[in-house]
Amino acid sequence: MRMENDDLKPGKVVLELTVANHPGVMSHVCGLFARRAFNVEGILCMPTGDGDESRIWLLVLDDSRLPQMVAQLEKLEDVRSVGRHGADRPVFERLQAFFE
Protein backbone atom coordinates (compact mmCIF):
# COMPACT_ATOMS: atom_id res chain seq x y z
CA MET A 1 0.00 0.00 0.00
CA ARG A 2 1.30 3.41 -0.95
CA MET A 3 0.32 6.60 0.88
CA GLU A 4 0.36 9.77 -1.12
CA ASN A 5 0.89 13.11 0.53
CA ASP A 6 -0.27 15.28 -2.32
CA ASP A 7 -3.72 16.74 -2.50
CA LEU A 8 -6.66 14.77 -3.71
CA LYS A 9 -6.13 14.83 -7.45
CA PRO A 10 -8.88 14.49 -9.96
CA GLY A 11 -9.33 10.81 -10.56
CA LYS A 12 -9.21 9.87 -6.91
CA VAL A 13 -12.24 8.86 -4.92
CA VAL A 14 -12.89 8.53 -1.22
CA LEU A 15 -15.02 5.55 -0.18
CA GLU A 16 -16.76 5.64 3.18
CA LEU A 17 -17.63 2.20 4.56
CA THR A 18 -19.73 1.48 7.60
CA VAL A 19 -18.78 -2.00 8.80
CA ALA A 20 -19.34 -4.36 11.70
CA ASN A 21 -16.61 -3.83 14.26
CA HIS A 22 -14.88 -7.15 14.85
CA PRO A 23 -11.45 -8.61 14.18
CA GLY A 24 -11.25 -9.73 10.58
CA VAL A 25 -13.24 -6.99 8.90
CA MET A 26 -10.10 -5.18 7.78
CA SER A 27 -8.83 -8.47 6.30
CA HIS A 28 -12.05 -8.86 4.34
CA VAL A 29 -11.95 -5.33 2.95
CA CYS A 30 -8.22 -5.12 2.20
CA GLY A 31 -8.15 -8.68 0.83
CA LEU A 32 -10.95 -7.87 -1.59
CA PHE A 33 -8.92 -5.04 -3.13
CA ALA A 34 -5.64 -6.97 -3.08
CA ARG A 35 -6.92 -10.11 -4.80
CA ARG A 36 -8.59 -8.07 -7.53
CA ALA A 37 -5.33 -6.18 -8.08
CA PHE A 38 -6.94 -2.84 -7.24
CA ASN A 39 -4.59 -0.54 -5.37
CA VAL A 40 -5.70 1.20 -2.17
CA GLU A 41 -3.85 4.50 -1.89
CA GLY A 42 -4.91 5.29 1.66
CA ILE A 43 -6.84 3.68 4.49
CA LEU A 44 -8.20 4.90 7.80
CA CYS A 45 -10.34 2.96 10.28
CA MET A 46 -11.84 3.78 13.69
CA PRO A 47 -14.74 2.46 15.76
CA THR A 48 -17.81 4.69 15.91
CA GLY A 49 -20.51 5.30 18.51
CA ASP A 50 -20.73 2.49 21.05
CA GLY A 51 -18.11 0.42 19.23
CA ASP A 52 -20.56 -1.91 17.50
CA GLU A 53 -19.60 -0.46 14.12
CA SER A 54 -16.48 0.98 12.55
CA ARG A 55 -15.97 3.46 9.76
CA ILE A 56 -13.38 2.76 7.11
CA TRP A 57 -12.19 5.50 4.76
CA LEU A 58 -10.46 4.35 1.60
CA LEU A 59 -8.64 6.50 -0.92
CA VAL A 60 -8.77 4.78 -4.32
CA LEU A 61 -8.29 5.58 -7.98
CA ASP A 62 -11.40 6.21 -10.00
CA ASP A 63 -10.79 3.76 -12.84
CA SER A 64 -13.29 1.78 -14.87
CA ARG A 65 -13.20 -1.13 -12.42
CA LEU A 66 -14.32 0.94 -9.44
CA PRO A 67 -18.07 0.22 -9.83
CA GLN A 68 -17.27 -3.51 -9.78
CA MET A 69 -15.16 -3.04 -6.62
CA VAL A 70 -18.02 -1.19 -4.94
CA ALA A 71 -20.45 -3.93 -6.00
CA GLN A 72 -18.14 -6.54 -4.50
CA LEU A 73 -17.74 -4.51 -1.29
CA GLU A 74 -21.50 -4.31 -0.95
CA LYS A 75 -21.65 -8.11 -0.99
CA LEU A 76 -19.45 -8.46 2.10
CA GLU A 77 -21.60 -9.49 5.06
CA ASP A 78 -19.80 -7.15 7.44
CA VAL A 79 -20.11 -4.11 5.19
CA ARG A 80 -23.34 -2.28 6.04
CA SER A 81 -23.03 0.60 3.61
CA VAL A 82 -20.67 2.05 1.03
CA GLY A 83 -20.64 5.76 0.25
CA ARG A 84 -18.63 7.49 -2.42
CA HIS A 85 -17.18 11.00 -2.14
CA GLY A 86 -15.05 13.28 -4.24
CA ALA A 87 -13.16 16.35 -3.14
CA ASP A 88 -16.03 17.31 -0.81
CA ARG A 89 -14.63 15.01 1.87
CA PRO A 90 -10.97 15.92 2.29
CA VAL A 91 -10.40 13.18 4.87
CA PHE A 92 -6.94 12.28 3.70
CA GLU A 93 -5.77 15.87 3.13
CA ARG A 94 -6.49 16.64 6.76
CA LEU A 95 -4.20 13.80 7.81
CA GLN A 96 -1.26 15.13 5.87
CA ALA A 97 0.50 16.44 8.97
CA PHE A 98 1.04 12.84 10.10
CA PHE A 99 2.83 11.93 6.91
CA GLU A 100 5.32 14.74 6.60
Binding site: P23, G24, S27, H28, G31, R35, L76, E77, D78
Partner: peptide
Amino acid sequence: YGISIPVTKHNWL
Protein backbone atom coordinates in the same frame (compact mmCIF):
# COMPACT_ATOMS: atom_id res chain seq x y z
CA TYR B 1 -10.01 -17.67 9.14
CA GLY B 2 -7.45 -15.84 7.02
CA ILE B 3 -7.07 -18.50 4.32
CA SER B 4 -10.80 -19.04 4.01
CA ILE B 5 -11.68 -15.39 3.29
CA PRO B 6 -11.04 -15.44 -0.47
CA VAL B 7 -12.87 -18.74 -1.05
CA THR B 8 -16.03 -18.20 0.99
CA LYS B 9 -19.12 -16.01 0.99
CA HIS B 10 -18.50 -15.35 4.66
CA ASN B 11 -16.55 -16.89 7.53
CA TRP B 12 -16.19 -16.78 11.30
CA LEU B 13 -13.69 -17.53 14.01
